[in-house]
Design a protein around this nucleic acid. Structure first.
Lengths: 333, 333
DNA sequence: CTGTTAGCGCTTTCAA
DNA sequence: TTGAAAGCGCTAACAG
């Protein structure tokens, strides 16, 4: 039961350096206005070093009403897409002197516990989170990432529609005409933009879209498996599928295998988001590499604007998605 | 540039309820000692409700020297094993009134930014993080999870040795005698305990262990691919491989496929950790389901002990691992 | 059963 | 170029 040693306070440093605490404070926070003799500054720095002084975070927060932390809420930590978005957000946060805190789970549950710990919040929620409840009193400035929702405030997205069109064009170029789409939850705009890119490209090429070849799903393997099974029992069977998420695409590959359908001979598959596992599936998965990290980084920039009181409007990133060609796509046989 | 409205303070609530701020404070923090008239309590609660009062976190932290937050540092967010450990830790934290903050990256870089934001820290670092540097002044009470390191303070692990033995026994029972092991980094005790469980079980059965059938690797698909390629070009070739990590196992499956070796006919594979994707690989992967969430939960319990000043010793969980039989293992042909 | 008081450690405005 | 003073909002010991 060792009681922890009392920590070093700014006044201890001041005493050692023989200056006033306010001088120490201003030196340490890099106050531009301050003019101080080089020798005095050195004395202070030495004292800080010698005493191993670390400012008390709570006191600083109380005084400045700033936490210098940002949060990102993700539906679950298992999703590599969010991991990548977070990575970009994290790097940008660090750049700006903030720490990014990742919290998993439902937004609504977490808001109270997060209250007062962050200056702003990124919502990376592609799931069916009841977004209406987000506008609660304890919510700090916030920004939606990878999703846009009218009335929900500003957001950052990428051009999912063009990405879907790019993948669809690839499949059509290979000669596929009966192409299915396993889409995300229909109430999420990201899903709708992808579906519309898919349909638009087919229309542009004069390929008729069978309505029953678009099957909604969610973002995990099991749901992808179920959706693909449904799609692959349709007659005539699609010869290619664009899957709106790589985890679901993995499920789709498994479903094809259960049905003894070979990839890519009998079925081509393209998945959204080039997560690390994609390259090592059998066959390696052709994917759409969306600019996820840049999206996370941009989200932080905009959130910081918001925190500083400037108004911000929703943005779609200029950066485009790239098609990563691997073994899961081929001409129909 | 709208300046945010000044927030409601405890004294505002006190004024409305016509009591002293200290009464409000004690009612809200559930002070047992306090005896207060039911009617007074109600007046306070009503005022809190009406004013939408939320205590200022920084002030509370400053006063109590407690943040009521715990942190967990993971090497990267992409790893489903850590995600599962975090899930368990998160649930237990919530139970105890704490929030769990997840931070990705290198421990050493993050310590400063995390300083003062958490009461304790879980290190879920299976990588080659230079652990010596952990003992820096700004480190709060901490606990190692999924890894034990002498001199590094208390840890929580599970019985990896028995788990490895269990998987090895399964392979031997199927009739395999030439079994390889793709292990984790040799300087991590978790890897060594697995390798020792593997070797022990073979010895117990009188199976000779060829030293060149144990190949070290790290925890991702690419490394697993490389290690498996190495292993599968040995002659005579192993007919089964125990892989110390599921991401590496995925790489191993890919390597077998590149070499035209069929699973499970020509090669059986067992991976550590039953991550969601395992069930949907082709073939579905036989895995060891370690009690990851319980390990995370127990880690939080012990960390809380540590924070309360009690001394804690390293623990290995009683809960055992379970072998999840799927399609990647079969008798040798 | 309720109120008074002091102070956590810091930053910032103002004065010298 | 440096110092003095005030106060952020809360809790806890003590007093009544």
């Amino acid at each position: 039961m060792s009681s922890r040693p009392r920590s070093v306070r700014i006044r201890d440093v001041a005493a050692v350096a023989k200056v006033d605490p306010s001088i120490v404070s201003r030196i340490l926070s890099g106050d531009e206005q301050l003019s101080v003799r080089a020798e005095t500054r050195q004395r202070v720095l030495d004292a800080v070093e010698r005493l191993q002084y670390r400012p008390n975070r709570a006191a600083r927060m109380l005084r400045t009403s700033r936490t210098m932390a940002l949060g990102i809420i993700v539906p679950d930590l298992t999703n590599a897409t969010y991991a990548e978005i977070s990575r970009g957000a994290d790097a940008e946060s660090a750049e700006r002197g903030y720490i990014l805190l990742v919290v998993a789970g439902s937004l609504f549950d977490r808001l109270q516990l997060l209250d007062g710990r962050v200056d702003g919040l990124l919502y990376a929620i592609a799931t069916s989170e009841p977004l209406e409840r987000v506008r609660v009193p304890e919510a700090p400035p916030s920004l939606l990432v990878n999703r846009h929702e009218p009335g929900m405030g500003p957001s950052v997205t990428v051009d999912d529609e063009s990405a879907a069109a790019l993948a669809t064009a690839h499949l059509a170029d290979l000669g596929h005409t009966r192409i299915g789409h396993i889409s995300g939850p229909p109430h999420v705009d990201t899903s709708r933009r992808r579906a519309s890119g898919f349909a638009g490209e087919l229309t542009r090429r004069g390929i008729v879209i069978a309505a029953d070849l678009i099957v909604p799903s969610t973002f995990d393997e099991r749901a992808g498996h179920a959706a693909a099974t449904e799609l692959l029992t349709r007659r005539p069977r699609p010869t290619a599928i664009l899957v709106a998420n790589t985890r679901a695409a993995i499920g789709a590959v498994a479903a094809a295998s259960s049905l003894d359908i070979s990839i890519p001979e009998d079925l081509s598959i393209v998945g959204f988001d080039d997560i690390p596992v994609a390259e090592f599936l059998v066959p390696p998965l052709t994917t759409l590499r969306r600019p996820l990290a840049p999206m996370g980084a941009r989200a932080v920039q905009l959130l910081l604007e918001l925190i500083e009181g400037r108004s911000v409007s929703s943005e779609m990133l200029e950066a485009t998605s790239e098609l990563v060609l691997r073994g899961s796509t081929a001409p129909p046989r």
